[in-house]
Design a protein around this nucleic acid. Structure first.
Length: 431
RNA sequence: GGAGGGAUGGCAGAGCGGCCGAAUGCGAAGCUCUUGAAAAGCUUUGGGAUGCAAGUCCCCGGGGGUUCGAAUCCCUCUCCCUCCGCCA
């Protein structure tokens, strides 16, 4: 959540910045009014408490001195003050609940140099790597689901039988390919990120405070008999680890990676763009997250983008870096770059990683702070992005590796991890 | 799953319902002394709300209650420890 102070201290500028993200001024005005009301009520409550505390203290002294009559009189007075206090406290509680509710609906402020725009049509392609359109002409490219079924590495019918639409069964070399991809990614990122294997279910508290569970978001699966949720991304577990903590400045930056299964309900999604592995309820991903000092976050963001791109380059996959415009930014992000891999089989660019600079939006909610060397306590900045999301990268490897004889050649860098160089060819490609 | 015990500041560890945001020790920071260091002495050392400030208010695992007043009493949840059961 944003700092409600911004609304009190600098309403116009804040409203202008949020307008770029499509936030209605009404919402902000409502929040500001509530914050103002809260400020007034806090002062009233404090004054009322002070009055009561003073009398209570006097009662203690009088009782010690055996001045019973005076004590009794004071006690009656205190009881009256107490009743009064309760009333204004109730008012304050109401205001705070309403304020909280309202502020929670306000998204993070976009970075000032994020391009203006309303939808993904206004996103900006910053650079493209390894993509030559002519290289894809005049050949019979196939979508990965056709290749996968033909080679027996993908089994959509069994997946549907087990779990329904948007689930996957990978078989044989297909399973091995996924395992190889995750190992490759974990090894690539090992130099900068500490590998974590977290729990895959987390408390309501954790998923709420990472901003992945609000009343407007029904992405996550809940366990029936426990107040626990399946993580929609490893980020939830990794960011949750430091909730409520005050880190030492010297501990920063904290960089973690985790290979986890992710579950998303994806309510409403179905149809053409969900075929094959394009969109799944359950998938595997290597996630990268970072906590750092505010002054470092912009530079760290660009490092994170470069980190997320490294596996794609090693796999020789053409990709492009897209900066999301202000209107397309996710709720909690101040800046987002998407990495999109070109899929020749469906002739589309598929998002394989979304790198977000979240600033202090999550850490304020989750109370993740750090203490400056000999100085004050501040909120850390948070960043996250996929280090490698397996389904779409799996699909891209299969589509790009398709050879005229129908087999799939794996990228060189992947061969040691997958233990094979060709899927579906003659036995020579196998080791 | 069953039975018992616990949760207090960076750590350890006191705390009669009022004088306790909290003794004491350790750790850490600053200062004095010293050529320097050690030792010793002095001082400082949690978070948050509100306020220009002085101040006031809140927080002793979380939430609720009793009371004029709760770290202290009651209820509840979570976590940790010991024992029993189960189990990869």
């Amino acid at each position: 959540m944003i700092d409600a102070r911004l609304l009190l201290d600098d309403f116009d500028a804040t409203a202008r910045r949020l307008a770029r993200k499509g936030v209605a001024p009404d919402l902000l005005g409502e929040a500001r009014d509530l914050a103002e009301q809260r400020r007034v009520q806090v002062q009233q409550v404090d004054a009322a408490r002070q009055a009561r505390n003073e009398v209570s203290k006097r009662i203690g002294a009088l009782r010690r001195d055996q001045r019973k009559d005076e004590a009794d009189r004071a006690q009656a007075e205190a009881a009256e003050l107490g009743r009064n206090l309760e009333q204004i406290e109730a008012g304050l509680r109401e205001t705070e609940a309403a304020l909280d509710d309202t502020v929670m609906r306000i998204p993070n402020l976009p970075a000032d140099d994020v391009p203006d725009g309303r939808s993904d049509a206004d996103n900006v392609v910053l650079r493209t790597y390894g993509y030559d359109p002519s290289a894809f002409e005049g050949r019979d490219w196939q979508p990965h689901w056709d290749i996968g079924e033909r080679l027996g590495i993908l089994d959509p019918e069994r997946a549907a039988k087990l779990s329904g639409a948007m689930f996957a069964v990978l078989k044989g070399d297909g399973a091995r390919l996924l395992r190889g991809l995750t190992s490759l990614a974990l090894d690539i990122h090992r130099d900068r990120y500490e590998e974590i294997i977290p729990p895959h279910v987390v408390r309501s508290e954790v998923i709420t405070k990472t901003g992945h569970l609000t009343k407007f978001d029904t992405q996550a699966y809940r366990l029936r008999d426990d107040e626990l949720w399946l993580i929609p991304t490893g980020e939830v577990a990794l960011m949750g680890m430091h909730q409520g903590e005050i880190l030492a400045e010297a501990e920063l930056p904290v960089r973690y990676m985790a290979y986890t299964t992710c579950w998303r309900r994806e309510a409403g999604a179905a149809g053409k763009e969900t075929r094959g592995l394009q969109r799944l309820h359950e998938f595997h991903k290597v996630e990268l997250v970072e906590l750092c000092r505010p002054e470092d976050s912009e530079a760290e963001f660009h490092s994170l983008v470069a980190d997320a791109a490294r596996p794609l380059e090693m796999l020789g996959l053409p990709y492009r870096v897209v900066e999301l415009c202000s209107g397309d930014l996710t709720f909690s992000a101040s800046r987002v770059y998407d990495l999109e891999v070109y899929s020749p089989g469906v002739d589309r660019w598929l998002e394989v990683s979304s790198i977000s600079l979240v600033t202090d939006f999550q850490s304020r909610r989750g109370q993740i702070r750090f203490r400056r060397e000999g100085g004050p306590v501040e909120f850390v900045h948070a960043l996250n992005g996929s280090g490698l999301a397996t389904p779409r990268v799996w699909a891209a490897v299969v589509e790009h590796g398709l050879q005229p004889d129908g087999s799939v050649r794996l990228p060189e860098a992947l061969v040691p991890y997958a233990g094979i160089s060709v899927i579906g060819g003659d036995e020579e490609g196998r080791r």
